[in-house]
Computed example of a mutant assay.
Amino acid sequence: MTKSLRIATLALSIFAALPVTAIAQQVEDKATFDVVIRGISAATLAFSGVEENGNYAVSGVLKSAGLAAMFRKISYTATAKGAVSGSRYTPFSYVEKSDNGKKQSTSKMTYTRGVPSAVQYTPAREAREKEVSPATQGGTVDTLTALYAILRDVDAGQECRISLKMYDGRYVSSIATSKPQAKGKSVICSGQYRRIAGFKPDDMAERTTFPFSLTYQPAANGRMRVTEVAMESLYGKAAMKRR
């Protein structure tokens, strides 16, 4: 994944979680975001998810768009499944397929009691001297699950309450939202994405924290919905805007 698309993806997010009620209830969510960097369209991010009986299933697609697509077509498709209780997520599996314009690859992760138990790459990925062991990453979630948790519709008063640690098979990071501030009918949250482990020394020396903001607005379903994510990236101002 190119740095600009990785930043746009990780510093932003996707999807929802509701407490299980006595009556089985299915909750569906889907949206498309335009990713803009320094005023230039760079990518689109779309997701579709469903929750039922305390479980969730999410699919997402990130692909280059606008001028970026003219120079190089890049796409990432992913699916994640797991259990959800309130704002707590326990992944069961994660699959990602990528096409960077030069080669295609697939990565898969499965979990045992919330601990990544198997990580597979096709073709095999080059090993590094210091790899993060999956066995040490119990309680983490995959990137797509984190995006789903942050971009979900929520009940009024429940905005800005996400704090998750992520592991994608190589990188460990965290993402959190807090400090809700009302602005008219909107609610704005402060957020932070932070690199923790698995990154190259140059990446850690360059920068480890990336602040961002989320803007919620009332949706037709009576809940609050993320309509924009804004941040200062390594390449200037970046944003995700919901269509």
Rank of each mutant, 00 (worst) to 15 (best):
Lys3Gly: 01
Arg6Asp: 10
Arg6Pro: 00
Leu10Ser: 14
Leu12Phe: 12
Ser13Asn: 08
Ile14Ala: 13
Ile14Phe: 08
Phe15Ile: 08
Ala16Val: 09
Ala17His: 05
Leu18Cys: 10
Ala22Asn: 13
Ile23Trp: 08
Ala24Glu: 05
Ala24Thr: 09
Gln26Tyr: 02
Val27Ala: 12
Asp29Ser: 11
Lys30Gly: 10
Asp34Phe: 02
Asp34Gly: 11
Asp34His: 06
Ile37Thr: 07
Ser41Met: 09
Ala42Thr: 11
Thr44Asp: 06
Ala46Val: 11
Phe47Gly: 06
Gly49Val: 03
Val50Arg: 11
Gly54Phe: 08
Asn55Gly: 13
Tyr56Lys: 14
Val58Gly: 06
Ser64Leu: 01
Ala65Ile: 03
Gly66Tyr: 01
Gly66Glu: 04
Lys73Val: 01
Lys73Leu: 07
Ala78Met: 13
Lys81Ser: 14
Ala83Asn: 03
Ala83Cys: 00
Ala83Leu: 02
Ser85Asp: 14
Ser87Pro: 00
Arg88Cys: 06
Arg88Met: 06
Tyr89Met: 02
Tyr89Gly: 06
Phe92Lys: 15
Val95Gly: 00
Ser98Asp: 01
Ser98Thr: 14
Asp99Leu: 14
Lys102Phe: 06
Ser107Trp: 02
Ser107Asn: 13
Met109Lys: 12
Met109Ala: 14
Tyr111Cys: 05
Thr112Val: 14
Thr112Gln: 12
Thr112Phe: 06
Pro116Ile: 12
Pro116Lys: 02
Ser117Ile: 04
Ala118Ile: 02
Val119Glu: 12
Gln120Asn: 14
Glu131Phe: 15
Glu131Gly: 15
Glu131Gln: 15
Ser133Tyr: 04
Thr136Asn: 10
Gln137Gly: 09
Thr140Lys: 13
Thr140Trp: 09
Thr140Glu: 04
Val141Ser: 11
Thr143Cys: 09
Thr143Gly: 15
Leu147Ala: 15
Leu147Val: 11
Ala149Ile: 03
Ala149Glu: 00
Arg152His: 12
Arg152Glu: 05
Asp153Trp: 09
Asp153Phe: 13
Arg161Ser: 12
Ser163Trp: 01
Tyr167Gln: 06
Tyr167Trp: 08
Gly169Trp: 01
Val172Tyr: 02
Ser173His: 03
Ser174Gln: 04
Ile175Ala: 00
Gln181Asp: 11
Ala182His: 10
Lys183Trp: 06
Lys185Arg: 13
Lys185Leu: 07
Val187Ile: 14
Val187Trp: 06
Ile188Pro: 03
Ile188Asn: 07
Cys189Lys: 05
Ser190Lys: 05
Arg194Met: 01
Arg194Ala: 06
Arg195Glu: 03
Arg195Val: 06
Ile196His: 03
Ala197Arg: 10
Phe199Lys: 04
Pro201Lys: 13
Asp203Ile: 11
Glu206His: 11
Arg207Ser: 07
Phe210Lys: 02
Phe210Pro: 08
Ser213Ile: 02
Thr215Ser: 05
Tyr216Ala: 01
Gln217Ala: 12
Pro218Tyr: 04
Pro218Cys: 09
Ala220Gly: 09
Ala220Asn: 07
Gly222Ser: 04
Gly222Ala: 04
Gly222Gln: 04
Thr227Trp: 00
Val229Arg: 05
Ala230Thr: 12
Ala230Ile: 07
Glu232Ser: 12
Glu232His: 07
Glu232Met: 12
Tyr235Asn: 04
Gly236Leu: 05
Lys237Asn: 13
Met240Asn: 04
Met240Glu: 02
